[in-house]
Nucleic acid binder design. Structure first.
Lengths: 157, 157
DNA sequence: GTTTACTTACTCGGATAATTACTGTCCGAGTCAGGACGG
DNA sequence: CCGTCCTGACTCGGACAGTAATTATCCGAGTAAGTAAAC
């Protein structure tokens, strides 16, 4: 099981954007995290399609959070970037082979799929309980409030 | 996020093996699930390396569970096949760019990594609570106890 | 002074390669069961 | 009748291609601000 690398970037970008007032260009975000601007754009597009960030084109354009950071959960970001496909996909292999299960038993999802699905729900529930605002608050606590303020100034300049 | 396809096969194989008394050849397991024997062997090797199944070579050889099915959790199987690498790998991109976080703040894992790690723990906890024996019991309940008995006979013959 | 049109530079977006991991396949080394032979 | 040896075939294990997805990159379409000119 592997999560897309862009998830980490997207989360960091959202934290930065939570402190931004004016649109932040993708190039600036890329420079800040030292990643390729072109590839980061792909990730930001995912956030845009999911309705998490708004894009402003033209000069002085860039990205901005649509909702308040407190109303954006980590799960929202993860699902936007990594997709909503479940990690476990039951192929119902029981229906193959010399002893296929009867149709009736296959109508209800097989026990394995059920267990895997419940685990994924637990994972999502855990991510849903944390918002981008919470992350930003954690950063302020560990890095000091001056850091984000300094960063905001750099974004503006 | 995507789980390896072999996880599903491995779980089904473990359920079957939980009802087996004699070693079951990989070819038989492959035929039962209608998958490639060679590729299924790759998955079974993972289970063997993890110490979940024992292998018997030579004639009448095959695979057998080492521990009782009630002492093998779904998480054991998933970790054996899919690996123990965490889905989220923090690359500490904060240390890059024009505003790297101070060394002190980086010693402790960053808030994002912490959240993702906790979610993964929740996922694992959910999978740990279900054993292979539980899965087998579910199958007996849905498919009827006759199904697994019939299957055992086929495995022996 | 105000309005208007233009130029300019900067933005995002989608289409396009390179790499990595996963999926699938093959053949060889090792081993146990069964049978034949000799005692 | 029993023990030993041999044969044989079947088993798993690791090494080898094919394919799909992720990662990374490029260039073009579109837009808003700034500027200069006309009214």
């Amino acid at each position: 099981m592997k999560l897309a690398a862009g998830v980490e970037w997207a989360l960091h970008c959202c934290v930065v954007l939570s402190r931004a007032t004016a649109p932040v260009p993708g190039a600036r975000l890329a420079e800040l995290h030292d990643v390729s601007r072109s590839y980061l754009a792909k990730t930001l597009q995912s956030l845009s399609r999911a309705g998490l960030v708004s894009t402003t084109e033209g000069r002085d354009g860039g990205y901005l959070l649509v909702r308040p950071a407190s109303e954006i959960s980590v799960l929202d970001v993860v699902r936007a970037v990594d997709g909503t496909e479940p990690a476990f996909r039951c192929t119902e292999i029981r229906q193959q082979g010399p002893f296929p299960t009867t149709g009736e038993a296959c109508l209800s999802p097989c026990g394995i799929a059920k267990v895997m699905h419940e685990a994924e729900q637990a994972w999502q529930t855990s991510l849903r309980q944390v918002s981008v605002a919470d992350l930003a608050a954690t950063f302020e606590a560990t890095s000091g409030s001056a850091a984000l303020r300094q960063l905001s100034g750099w974004l503006a300049g």
